[in-house]
């Protein structure tokens, strides 16, 4: 039954990847990739149970951290075209 859950998560990941590939704006792609990251966290957890090695959960936790930071970094990069200090912009002046 863990195998069934893994298969379902893989299908969902595939659907999200379609949106990531097809998305008309860059924000669609970021949204889809963020979703794929969350799904990967679940996939790692379920696969750890499937293979009988719950140590995989540590990797899932770290992946959740990386996913959050990566989304924020990419979002900020598309917004300002730089990863510089927040004091350089007031957040409103430029698109």
């Amino acid at each position: 039954m863990f195998a069934a859950a893994t298969a379902a998560l893989l299908v969902v990941t595939g659907l999200a990847m379609i949106r990531a590939l097809a998305g008309p704006t860059v924000f669609d792609r970021i949204l889809a990739v963020n979703t794929v990251g969350t799904l990967t966290v679940m996939l790692i957890a379920v696969y750890g149970f499937l293979s009988g090695r719950p140590e995989f959960l540590d990797i899932a936790l770290v992946y959740a951290l990386i996913n959050f930071i990566a989304t924020l970094a990419v979002t900020k990069y598309t917004k300002y075209s730089s990863l510089g200090a927040p004091g350089d912009h007031d957040g409103r002046s430029e698109p």
């Binding site: 704006t25 924000f27 963020n34 899932a60 959740a64 959050f68 989304t71 924020l72 979002t75």
Partner: peptide
Amino acid sequence: IVVFIVFTSPTATHALARAALQG
């Protein structure tokens, strides 16, 4: 993991929404 995702996912979504709005 659940607590972490519950705290971070709305923040990421909000950042993305703001970026899209300003983009």
